[in-house]
């Protein structure tokens, strides 16, 4: 059912369908993607996503040592009879998933055609709708040097217009400070869950500390790294002054093929560092070219399990 479909979908709401970012075609395409997401996650109904928590569910998860105060009903007596060890059976806790969509709105996201921010907003909107369709709890944030919450946590596809509104309000500006922004995110004590981080990751301080902040707060970060292929071979030549779009600092260079080669190597090293950082922390990282059509990108992300198993 579409967001304004006749079968239980949200009632049509006053929404500007002439908006270039989220036009009517975009909204129609969202419903198709939601159905696709259902097929990908076939058999999973509401609240069936397994959380990383162990708790009071019915599905066996693991054993752990018995500690004084534990409920004796969960002691695995069979193990005790066989091995003489008191082990407690733990179960996966079934609960609805909290999805936090965090979008980088620093000035660097405005670069490129299409801009990374537009791609991030479309992807964020699509993934948000799919999450809402799966009855997950969804919250939307934007960050540059600090964090702004654009949509409070909530469930239900009826929030789709609020979601679109939230993304539509996002504007690029300011410098990137991942660590401070994610620290601010954690400080708001949101419910632990999935954090979809859509960003170009152009932060001189790096990604490591930001991810560590999330992991220590028991969030499951998923990095969607937006890449502009035009960054790899910029159409520059000659005497230019390069100015950082975020902080305004600049350097004078003579762009030669040799310098472009070195820049390309630096870019490859930096992307490799991002991948290594995520791999070392067991954080899923998906590189996505901004030139990829947004719906294909969403399908690809769903196939890679961005919204969980």
């Amino acid at each position: 059912m579409g967001p304004w479909g006749s079968r239980g979908g949200p009632a049509p709401a006053p929404y500007d369908l002439q908006d270039e970012l989220f036009d009517e075609a975009f909204v129609r395409r969202l419903e198709a993607l939601a159905l696709l997401a259902r097929r990908i996650h076939a058999g999973r109904e509401r609240a069936e996503r397994r959380s990383r928590r162990t708790g009071t569910g019915v599905e066996f998860a693991d054993h752990r040592e018995y500690l004084p105060g534990d409920d004796l009903r969960h002691v695995d007596w069979n193990v005790w009879q066989r091995h003489g060890r008191l082990l407690l059976r733990t179960y996966e806790q079934h609960e609805d998933l909290s999805v936090h969509v965090v979008v980088d709105t620093s000035r660097s996201m405005s670069c490129g055609t299409p801009s990374r921010l537009d791609v991030a907003r479309r992807l964020g909107a699509a993934l948000s709708y799919i999450a809402l369709s799966a009855l997950d709890r969804l919250a939307i944030y934007a960050f540059d040097r600090g964090l702004v919450r654009h949509l409070a946590p909530g469930r239900g596809r009826g929030r789709i217009f609020a979601v679109l509104d939230a993304f539509r309000r996002m504007r690029a500006g300011g410098e990137t400070d991942l660590q401070s922004s994610l620290r601010a995110f954690v400080a708001q004590r949101p419910r632990p869950g999935l954090v979809l981080l859509l960003s170009d990751l152009y932060d001189a301080e790096g990604l490591e500390r930001g991810l560590d902040v999330l992991r220590h707060a028991r969030f499951e970060p998923v990095v969607i790294h937006l890449i502009d292929p035009a960054d790899e071979r910029p159409a520059l030549r000659g005497e230019v002054r390069l100015v950082d779009v975020e902080d305004g600092s600049g350097i004078d260079v003579t762009v030669t093929p040799a310098l472009l080669e070195r820049y390309e190597r630096a870019l490859r090293r930096w992307r490799e560092r991002v991948r290594t950082t995520c791999l070392e922390r067991q954080v899923r990282c998906h590189e996505l070219a901004v030139t990829t059509p947004w719906d294909e990108a969403v399908v690809e992300l769903l196939r890679r399990g961005v919204l969980g198993d």
Binding site: S108, C111, G112, D200, Y202, A204, D228, D231, P234, L236, G238, E239, V240, R241, L242, V243, D244, V245, E246, D247, S249, G250, I251, D252
Partner: peptide, 9 residues
């Protein structure tokens, strides 16, 4: 010099 903005100096 020609001024060129880059996303990540």
């Amino acid at each position: 010099r020609r001024r060129v903005e880059v996303p990540f100096l």
